[in-house]
Design a protein around this nucleic acid. Structure first.
Lengths: 142, 142
DNA sequence: CTCAATGCAAACCGTTTGCATGCTC
DNA sequence: GAGCATGCAAACGGTTTGCATTGAG
């Protein structure tokens, strides 16, 4: 994503433009996998960019509030993971063997939720699905 | 549940029969809500039954392994929760206002999983759904 | 008598917080 | 210059572990 676009995401959210925020958004946007705070910290640390774990956590918190990124809490993961928010509803396939996490777009719950709400009176506003199993590669090695 | 049945669940799992295990299974079986290790500890502590948090954790671990109870990791909960295993597939409705957790039986994902497996090649072995929203009582107070 | 179960204290680990300093607006 | 952002160190909170002791089979 262009630098200019990221800057404007930051200012549109009422946040101050700082190099750290810019870099973290950029990293998440380019990443093809979910990243933990520690992953992000390591990434910059390895490049000799000074970075502080607390700052990473505080930055991630702000970016989640601003809906620039999503916070993902998966059952089997000890760490909280983050992804760039592409504004597309999705869930995850999680391989129990290699831990690879694959997003899947599309969602089967729309009608079911309507039905559930009618039955229970509970007002459903969101949901979360995790699928567990084995990815193609791991199936081959089994 | 009868004491005898609980004793046999323990021995069937190859575990030694101890008062603590018996009591924890009994408590979970009688509880109408999910309990954390701390909840369980408190319950006995309040009754002046000596109890140790490490032991609670170790006992819960064993009982989960033995499939006598289920371990439930919910996104918004800081603590891991436990329930007696009634061997009925279910998910949870979670009220964002009062935090009440309501189990719902029945599941809409069966066909969808088949379809997903065909599309992706991923072998799905289990899944987890959490529904978030507002329970009837909290809707009234809104 | 043996090995699993328990109690206690300390460690663990991801995350959060208090406070002093730096930097954006 | 005001107030948000950052760095550092310490705290936090749920959970786990090491080790000595107890107790079930």
């Amino acid at each position: 994503m262009k630098k200019k676009n990221i800057w404007s995401m930051i200012t549109d959210a009422g946040l101050k433009k700082t190099k750290i925020r810019m870099n973290i958004i950029d990293l998440l946007e380019k990443s093809n996998r979910l990243l933990s705070a520690q992953d992000i910290y390591n990434n910059f640390y390895e490049k000799d960019d000074s970075m502080n774990l607390s700052t990473v956590y505080r930055t991630l918190e702000k970016l989640v509030e601003a809906k620039i990124i999503n916070k993902i809490h998966l059952e089997q993961e000890t760490q909280i993971l983050y992804e760039f928010n592409h504004d597309e509803h999705h869930h995850f396939l999680i391989c129990k063997s290699c831990n690879k996490i694959t997003p899947i777009y599309g969602c089967p719950l729309h009608d079911y939720e309507k039905e559930l709400m009618k039955e229970t009176g509970f007002m459903i506003t969101s949901h979360k699905i995790e699928f567990y199993g084995y990815c193609i590669d791991c199936q081959k090695n089994m």
